[in-house]
């Protein structure tokens, strides 16, 4: 089996798990107040976006230069 397919498969599953967990953490943080909580919310939100990026990269929607 092509090693790239294995890497993409692991990245796909991991991006779903990490993205879901980060979203859940972000949801729990939404009710908290304070400067550190605000910074954490922003950074966790961006982390969730990162998981989406990896998800789409692993299913070849992003970064597909074959053509």
């Amino acid at each position: 089996m092509d090693i790239a397919i294995v890497e993409r498969g692991i990245a796909l599953i991991a991006s779903i798990i990490v993205g879901a967990t980060a979203s859940w953490q972000l949801k729990n943080e939404l009710s908290t107040r304070g400067l550190d909580a605000t910074a954490t919310k922003v950074l966790l939100g961006l982390l969730v976006i990162g998981c989406f990026v990896v998800f789409f990269a692993s299913i070849n929607v992003l970064g597909n230069f074959a053509s």
């Binding site: 692991i10 990245a11 991991a14 991006s15 982390l47 998981c51 990026v53």
Partner: peptide
Amino acid sequence: VAFGALNSIVLFGSGVTMH
């Protein structure tokens, strides 16, 4: 891209565990 995605999710996963 495949290896980059894998390495990226390792780092993002570490963000979740740190939290």
